[in-house]
Design a protein around this nucleic acid. Structure first.
Length: 265
DNA sequence: TAACTTGTTTAAAC
DNA sequence: TGTTTAAACAAGTT
């Protein structure tokens, strides 16, 4: 479940593997991946920088086009290595013999090829809000972004039109770090709560980048040590106070939290 | 086998 | 009109 930090890692990796190199061939193994555009037009062109927007990765390919990727649940970009069991949907072969693949077990990810001039229109059409990171954002900024929201804070944090890139895991971790009850209605939050959110977000992102950086992101189910402090730790002792982490379903999504640490409504 | 996993979209409710 | 919640969906794992 790649969210902002995981997409940031994959975007950096993709740029590191491809920028300045020439695309020998783009193999669309699973045609359902590509929502729009034509990959064959990219053959023989030079690859430019990669960047992230929300949970999307954008790669400049050739003089005027970009490849946009969204990973959904199980998508990832990896450097293809012989003997590895993969589920590639797209393969970018470079002239130096290496290949980057879009690996996606559940095949829910999506890709687009668009003119680079369409970038703003693409994200505006999807009502993607501003980036919470790496530009510093103060409590007042967060408060303004959630003006008008009425429901509980945790599901609100996941609304991409308010702030881009935060998913279920990020929202869970931010509430735990900020010591905010995930059920608290947004209109009740005072300035100090927004200050805590403003501090928790870069702390969560920096911590996840530190723990997960590498050639391949790790999913929770793969048995690697989880970088998360609350998410997935139901029943385990809170890292702050030792009380058991609780779990409940909120707006159809699982939420983990520490009742003593995160106050009570 | 059915329940569960996620982000997004759509529909319906408020 | 704007916001919120529920359901549906993709497809694979447990």
């Amino acid at each position: 479940m790649p969210e902002l930090p995981e997409v940031e890692i994959m975007t950096r990796n993709l740029g590191r593997w491809t920028q300045g190199r020439t695309l020998a061939q783009a193999e669309l193994i699973d045609p359902t991946l590509l929502q729009e555009g034509d990959l064959s037009a990219l053959t023989g062109t030079s690859i430019g920088p990669a960047r992230r927007r929300g949970k999307y990765t954008i790669l400049d390919v050739g003089p005027e086009r970009m490849l946009i990727l969204h990973f959904r649940m199980t998508g990832k970009v990896v450097l293809e290595r012989p003997g590895e069991r993969r589920r590639p949907r797209l393969r970018l072969r470079l002239t130096d013999g290496t290949a980057v693949i879009f690996d996606d077990t559940r095949r829910l990810g999506q890709a687009w090829v668009r003119p680079r001039t369409d970038e703003d229109a693409f994200f505006n059409a999807r009502k993607l809000g501003p980036e919470p990171w790496p530009e510093p954002r103060e409590g007042a900024w967060w408060r303004a972004r959630f003006q008008g929201a009425r429901g509980p804070i945790k599901p609100a944090l996941m609304q991409q039109h308010r702030v881009a890139g935060l998913g279920n895991i990020a929202a869970t971790e931010i509430c735990w770090r900020a010591r905010i009850d995930p059920r608290r209605p947004v209109p009740e939050l005072e300035a100090d709560a927004w200050d805590a959110v403003a501090a928790a977000v870069p702390a969560f992102i920096a911590h996840t980048l530190d723990t997960e950086s590498g050639d391949e992101i790790h999913y929770l189910s793969q048995g690697s040590a989880s970088p998360f402090l609350a998410y997935g730790r139901g029943g385990a002792p809170c890292r702050r106070c030792g009380a058991p982490i609780a779990r409940f379903t909120q707006s159809g999504r699982v939420t983990y939290w520490c009742p003593p640490c995160q106050g009570q409504v």
